[in-house]
């Protein structure tokens, strides 16, 4: 399978940042001005380098192609169905190099097991963003009004590679 040119991927990720930052249930603990890695749907590859520590990003992360700056930032708190969690994402230039779960809250202790099952999926999905290079989104059954905030709308702004 061919990979898309890096420029396209970086552009995609940057396009999502700041545009697609909504959640089904807003959580008050969000800090304004933080980077929102949860808004980078498709970034990429395996999070093996857990210690790619760099200065915490103060402003929104813009993944510029060619940059070698290493930054990490905590994302917005995310609802995942059985509770909330927070993800820290480390970016080296335009690549996500690490994703870690920094906080996990579940409604009841018995949910813990469920959460541990769900988290690997969440992690792989954040990581998948770097290799996404997709042509369409399946399952985005948005209304006309919600379309402007959808992943499909972001894709439609991009030219075909």
């Amino acid at each position: 399978m061919k990979r898309a040119p890096l420029l396209v991927l970086a552009g995609t990720a940057a396009g999502f940042v700041g545009v697609l930052t909504f959640h089904t249930r807003p959580v008050s603990a969000t800090t304004p001005g933080q980077a929102q890695p949860s808004a980078m749907p498709s970034a990429s590859s395996a999070a093996t380098s857990s210690a790619a520590a760099g200065p915490a990003a103060a402003g929104p992360t813009r993944a510029a192609a060619g940059s070698t700056l290493v930054r990490s930032a905590a994302g917005q708190i995310v609802q995942f169905g059985y509770g909330e969690l927070n993800v820290r994402v480390t970016v080296n230039g335009s690549h996500i190099t690490a994703v870690s779960v920094t906080d996990l809250q579940t409604a009841e202790p018995t949910s813990q097991q469920i959460s541990e099952q769900a988290i690997p999926m969440l992690r792989s999905e954040v990581l998948s963003a770097q290799s996404a290079n997709v042509n369409g989104i399946s399952g985005a059954t948005f209304t006309s009004r919600a379309y402007v905030q959808s992943l499909q709308a972001a894709l439609d702004k991009l030219n075909v590679k």
């Binding site: 995942f80 999905e125 905030q149």
Partner: peptide, 26 residues
């Protein structure tokens, strides 16, 4: 979409509207 490439679809993540659960070739 290009010679030797298949169309790729992102599957909408069920709990995060800004994310993908996975990718399939269509």
């Amino acid at each position: 979409p290009a010679p030797g490439q298949e169309w790729r679809a992102g599957i909408q993540h069920p709990w995060r509207r800004d994310a993908l659960a996975g990718i399939i070739e269509v």
